[in-house]
Design a binder for these strands. Structure first.
Lengths: 142, 142
DNA sequence: CTAGAAACTAGAGCTTGCTCTAGGTCAATA
DNA sequence: TATTGACCTAGAGCAAGCTCTAGTTTCTAG
C-alpha cells in the first residue's frame, strides 16, 4: 500500500520551503495548513507534496505582505467551501491590487533613493563641504 | 536673526510625515534624528523644514525595508562624518540593490498569484468540483 | 542493538516597530 | 484669564512572526 505517496518529514519540508521546522509547527498551530499532516506510528509528521505546494503559495502570499491571519482566512475558505471559489477569488484579487500598489510605492521610493545617491556622488565629486544639513531648503538634506 | 525659520510643532510634523507624535518621540529616543529638535521656553519640540525632509527620507528607507537600526547607522554617519559621503553611498547602493531584489521577487510572486487567480476563474467557469486538493500533482493546490 | 540525529510537546522568550497610559505642563483663543 | 487642546516624560503594553528551551521519544545507519 501507499505506493506513489511520497511522504516528507518536517525536516525535508523545512529545507524545501525555507521555513524552519519550528515555523512549520507554529503554522500548524495557527491553522495555516489545510489539514493536519498525517503521522507515523511514532507520532512524527508526514507531509505530502500537496502540502509543499500549499506552503509555497503561503510563502508567496506572505512575501507579498499578506498577514498570517489573512492566509488563515484563505485556508478556512478552502476547508469550509472547497467548491466555492468566489471568496478566495475576492481575497486574491484584493491582494493583487495591494501588491500592485506596493510595486508602485517601491518604484517611487527607489527613484528617490537613486536621486539621493546621485546627489551624494555629485557632492563627493565636487568635494562639497557639508554641515549636518548640506543643501538647504530645496531637497537634499544631509 | 532667524527670519525665515519656519518652526514646526510635533503635531505638524506628524501630519506632514504620516508618523504619529508617539512615533516621532520614539524615533528621537532611538537616535534616528540628525540632532535633537530645539525646544520652546516651555519645553515643546520645534522642528525645522530640514527635519521634515530627513523624516521623508527615513520614510522612504523604511518603506523599502530598511530596518530602523540601519537608518540610525546612516544618521550616525551623517553626524560623525558630515563630509565623507563614502559610507553613506555604500549603504545607499547596497540598499538600492536590496530594493531591486525585492522588486524582482514581488513581480515574480505577483505573477504566481495572478496565475492562481486564473486557475480559480477557470474552475469557477467550468464548475470544477474540488476536494481540498483540486488539481493534483502539477501546480495548483487548493 | 546501539548511538546519534531528528522529531515530539508545551510553553516561554525574542525582535521589531510601534502605541498607549498616567499624571502632569504649556499655549493659543474666546 | 480661563479653558481647552496640544505637548511633556517615563515607562508599560502590544501585535506579528517567529525562535528557542527542556525534557523525552522515535528513527536510521552502522
Amino acid at each position: 500500500m501507499t505506493p506513489p505517496a511520497a511522504g516528507l518529514t518536517i525536516g525535508q519540508v523545512a529545507s524545501a520551503t525555507g521555513l524552519s521546522v519550528h515555523t512549520l509547527r507554529f503554522y500548524e498551530r495557527e491553522g495555516l495548513f489545510l489539514h493536519a499532516p498525517t503521522r507515523t506510528a511514532g507520532g512524527h509528521r508526514v507531509y505530502s507534496p500537496d502540502d509543499l505546494q500549499w506552503l509555497q503559495l503561503c510563502n508567496r502570499l506572505r512575501d507579498t505582505g499578506m498577514p498570517l491571519a489573512q492566509i488563515k482566512e484563505f485556508a478556512d475558505l478552502i476547508r469550509t467551501r472547497p467548491d466555492d471559489y468566489s471568496g478566495r477569488l475576492q481575497m486574491l484579487r484584493e491582494h493583487e491590487a495591494a501588491v500592485i500598489a506596493k510595486q508602485l510605492a517601491l518604484a517611487e521610493n527607489l527613484e528617490a533613493i537613486r536621486h539621493k545617491i546621485a546627489i551624494y556622488e555629485e557632492h563627493q565629486r565636487t568635494g562639497a563641504t557639508a554641515g549636518i544639513y548640506t543643501d538647504g531648503r530645496q531637497g537634499g538634506v544631509a
